[in-house]
């Protein structure tokens, strides 16, 4: 038995979404998103809850949750820096930005700072090739990145 429960807002959203699809299995991704926004990540416990909601096995949920790179299967830092590393951003100097971030934060890509404030991830093409280099800070895009812009941002977030 899982101890996880949707909050009321998500319960209502779930019910409203049920009306919009021919089969409730379509609610897999929406449900996992709701879990992640509610908890910050997706635990095995929450997956069992989703499985019960959708009438499938917990393994089915795990299989999907582990396939998509945006689903977080463990907790991360408060500020999730997702630096794009793909070609157009690479041509615009993403590697330099990566090194700078690693030095300033004292972590490697894929790691979280000890105080739990920052997680640095390298991600594939964000679709901001014309405004590269680019990163996401949690859900927000920050484009046309420069070292100065990055420093100012880290300064602000470290306060």
């Amino acid at each position: 038995m899982s101890t996880f429960l949707f909050n009321q807002d998500n319960e209502e959203k779930f019910s409203a979404l049920l009306e919009r699809y021919p089969d409730k299995s379509s609610l897999m991704l929406p449900s996992l998103w709701m879990v992640q926004y509610q908890e910050g990540w997706i635990s095995l416990d929450a997956m069992q809850f989703v499985a019960k909601k959708l009438g499938c096995s917990a393994m089915d949920v795990y299989s999907v949750a582990s396939f998509y790179s945006m689903f977080l299967l463990q907790p991360i830092g408060t500020h999730h820096i997702q630096l794009c590393k793909t070609l157009s951003c690479m041509l615009a100097g993403a590697k330099t930005l990566q090194e700078h971030l690693q030095n300033r934060l004292g972590i490697k890509a894929g790691e979280t700072t000890k105080n739990g404030k920052f997680t640095l991830s390298l991600v594939e093409c964000l679709g901001s090739c014309g405004t590269s280099p680019c990163m996401r800070l949690n859900d927000d895009y920050i484009e046309n990145l420069t070292l100065e812009k990055l420093d100012a941002l880290l300064e602000e977030l470290s306060k």
Partner: peptide
Amino acid sequence: AGAYICGEKTALLESLEGKR
């Protein structure tokens, strides 16, 4: 949820159906 392959139309439909 972050999968390039879902731009392929049948993978997209699988994803829309709640699968990998």
